[in-house]
Design a binder for these strands. Structure first.
Lengths: 155, 155
DNA sequence: TTACTTTCTCAAGTAGACTTTAACTCAAGG
DNA sequence: CCTTGAGTTAAAGTCTACTTGAGAAAGTAA
């Protein structure tokens, strides 16, 4: 006889919320955003499978790493809806994430060095300051909240 | 005879926008936020001094470093309105910024290591995964855009 | 069955950093 | 003088990642 949770058709949103620590409203939001697609009971209530817990965990971890929901969606929409990333998926996606993280760290370190340079000279000049480079400024065009330091969405 | 720009009472918003690369709307916004306080011509138009260029540059650089306007305001409101940070101000503020940056880099590196660990084991488990720690999740409570990895406002 | 808890949907609110639009006024050039 | 380009204000829109609230239907316990 399978455990209790499996005798039912699936977990309710409240149950999976408890198991993941996410608010139900957040989980519904992820659904709106196409990150997760639960079944529906005849009554219309959402029913989640156990793999969805891992799927949500993955989302939380990726956010922890600093990725946007759009980035995350790009990485998991290739997986069947009721599957969380398995080991091979995770290796692939994790490696991809790692590269982005490395780039991010490198960028910050570069910035850090520039800052040290700049503290030394005290220039703060539009034309001379190494911190104040036009390339970065060009990247800032457009509206909406900025990604931290030149992040571009993942392909 | 002083250069052209100095014969007038100051730069218009369009002129300073061109010199800094900022949009006029952004500069007005900074004013609303108390980051800069230009004089007014009799007609009511804003007039900027040359020091304001450096002041705006400072704002741009600080943003580049990842600081919020609130943080930046906290650092420059001590300066007289028509002054940009001078060498000693810059050393003080720059050092403060440097520390925050260092902390940020350390955090990301830690995250990066965890990720590598995690790619190896492929666990992605709610209970076991080092990436998935409840403390960090607790910090995420509440609304509004999240700061990247535990940044707190500067004093 | 009554009472209470969940869940549902849809709309609106929140923060930060701006942009866009509307409706005007003003300054400079021909 | 008249047009055009720039400046002014206030209000509303934008984006992300959610939360909150309203009102209704469904599930659960006693």
């Amino acid at each position: 006889m399978p455990p209790k949770a499996l005798r039912k058709t699936g977990l309710t949103i409240g149950e999976i919320a408890d198991r993941t620590g996410l608010a139900p409203s957040a989980i519904r939001y992820y659904e709106d955003e196409g990150l997760i697609a639960p079944d529906r009971a005849v009554s219309g209530q959402r029913r989640y499978q156990r793999a969805d817990i891992r799927r949500l965990s993955f989302i939380m971890i990726a956010q922890e790493l600093g990725f946007s929901l759009a980035d995350i969606r790009a990485q998991i929409t290739h997986l069947p809806s009721h599957r969380a990333p398995g080991k091979s998926d995770w290796t692939r996606i994790g490696t991809r994430f790692g590269k982005v993280l490395d780039a991010r760290i490198a960028q910050m370190q570069q910035l850090r060095n520039k800052l040290d340079n700049c503290i030394g000279c005290g220039c703060l000049s539009l034309t001379d300051c190494t911190l104040y480079n036009p390339e970065d400024r060009a990247a800032r065009r457009g509206i909406g909240p900025r990604y931290l330091k030149g992040d571009k969405p993942l392909e």
